[in-house]
Design a protein around this nucleic acid. Structure first.
Lengths: 297, 297
DNA sequence: CGTCGGCCATGCATAAATGTATAGCAGCTT
DNA sequence: AAGCTGCTATACATTTATGCATGGCCGACG
């Protein structure tokens, strides 16, 4: 069994896969084209099969190579995490880069003050925010710490439940003065509603609680929660909004208080990072920040 | 930014961490001690900090090195998967190794016939079974295909719901003749019950359905579901058992039919492996096998 | 207390991997 | 149709990484 496949080969393999040519991969990796070609040849040798069909315009991946791509990407992702963790580590101090993932709304509306304060206390800290609604997999994407709206499943994580963020319906006062205040869920049909466009798994789940919150009932549709929030703030109609955020704007009025959707909120981190000073610092800061956020009713 | 850290360095780094010495790592990797030392030195150079304190008896990892260990292990795991997938790939044929994870009970009682038949059809196939009740993370552990009792969360997976496996209470006929048949859930207190020892997250969830199924009520406690099953089959008392399994033993009698716990069962696989012939073959076989299993009422 | 075994560090020879240069081929553009 | 560009493959030179041998150090053991 050829156990001596250098991990380095995987890296060039992935680059060739991505660039579609030895020359391109070589450029990206800072090596030369013959070297890239030799790496691929070595890998093909080790696996006992071709990974690419050579053409004049580049290399076309075979079925086998396609099957391996995901793995290679996973390695790359982990390698990037490793490098990020290893760089800028200083005994006892919190220095270096930490990559945080959170939903768009949380990233925009909740985290910034906390992160700013954090940096004041730890000037050596570099913080990357990955704002995305897709459920990030800590092992998959390059993220050290994630704010999640679902309890973490994976055992290797250290996770802390920071409370429940309530989502409810809001509208600006002038909209309600204009269009009236709905008194029942059925009333919503006569209003300008602000909601989602494409249905995600999360929305599908949430819809069970709000049966009337259907796509075809919406006047404004947007995939971005930020856009929805902006529409609500602009008085365009009635939309869903985290209660703690709406509280900041005195003109936003809660309608149909019975309609509440609770978001169990968690902060999760790789168990490996428990011993890393800077990750612990950011983790604790996020926990404190979100506990405060979830505490607002 | 030194982006040119060879992935190969990570491999020796992990080996040094594991072996606790350059010499040991070198032996394991089939390189020499000076080379291992140089690799570590390169890595320390790239990270700008020491990873080990050199002693005469070996290398002691610093705080930084400890923080990196988990990442390095993750890389190793992925590399192993990659190698396994790449080796023995043959266009159109199902050859090579596939690693399957399932619960102990499923691994022991349900899969073997299906795997045996599968191998008959595809003699080039090598199958590894990882029997463990811990929820395996497909990206974390070295597993290609997993049989899970929970809907998969991660988007990168291809998952198939194969049905609902019902778990109910059973006892052997002679036990019931001896001790009587319980007529209500409260009656259970007077019986010899077979249950879990340590409470896992899964059991905590399941307990909500069966409030009377408490640890202190059990006569026999075992963490292993296999042992519990064996005790039920031996007529030791009343225990939980998958209905489909109990059906095989004519002496096992279902008690308190109202107490049923449904296990939603899924077969999950990396999306990357969709194009791999051998993985698809095993995936389909597992789906068929478990659909048949879940179909038994 | 001396010996043995295991470990790290260093200097040096060698083998291995990489880079350079070039040839050849295909597809575009003018 | 000729020239340009981008690609792979090969031959050759060179750098780089590796292995080998050795020395020094510490702890275990008889």
């Amino acid at each position: 069994m050829a156990d001596d496949i250098s991990w380095e080969l995987y890296r060039t393999f992935l680059a060739v896969l991505r660039e579609g040519s030895l020359s391109g991969a070589a450029r990206r990796l800072g090596i030369t084209q013959p070297t890239a070609g030799r790496h691929v040849a070595l890998l093909e040798d080790a696996f006992g099969q071709p990974l690419f069909t050579r053409t004049q315009t580049g290399l076309k991946p075979t079925e086998a190579a396609t099957a391996l791509q995901g793995h290679a990407e996973a390695m790359e992702s982990v390698a990037a995490s490793l490098r990020r963790t290893g760089t800028g580590f200083r005994e006892g101090e919190a220095t270096g880069t930490v990559r945080v993932s959170a939903s768009e709304v949380i990233s925009m509306e909740v985290l910034p003050p906390a992160l700013a304060a954090l940096h004041q206390r730890h000037p050596g800290l570099r913080i990357e925010v990955d704002a995305s609604n897709a459920v990030q997999d800590l092992t998959q994407r390059e993220v050290d710490i994630a704010v999640r709206m679902a309890p973490p499943k994976q055992g290797v994580l250290v996770a802390r439940h920071v409370g429940t963020v309530a989502v409810a319906l809001f509208a600006r006062d002038d909209y309600l003065a204009r269009a009236g205040t709905p008194s029942s869920e059925d009333d919503l049909a006569r209003h300008a509603l602000i909601g989602y466009d494409r249905e995600t798994p999360f929305i599908r789940e949430a819809r069970k609680a709000w049966p009337s919150w259907r796509r075809d009932a919406f006047t404004f549709r947007a995939d971005s929660d930020l856009v929805q929030l902006a529409l609500v703030r602009a008085g365009a109609g009635i939309g869903a909004c985290q209660v703690a955020l709406a509280r900041r704007d005195p003109r936003l009025v809660r309608v149909l208080p019975a309609m509440v959707f609770p978001l169990e909120t968690w902060v999760a981190m790789h168990g490996n990072l428990r011993t890393s000073r800077r990750h612990k610092v950011v983790f604790d800061a996020l926990v404190a920040c979100l506990q405060a956020h979830a505490g607002i009713q």
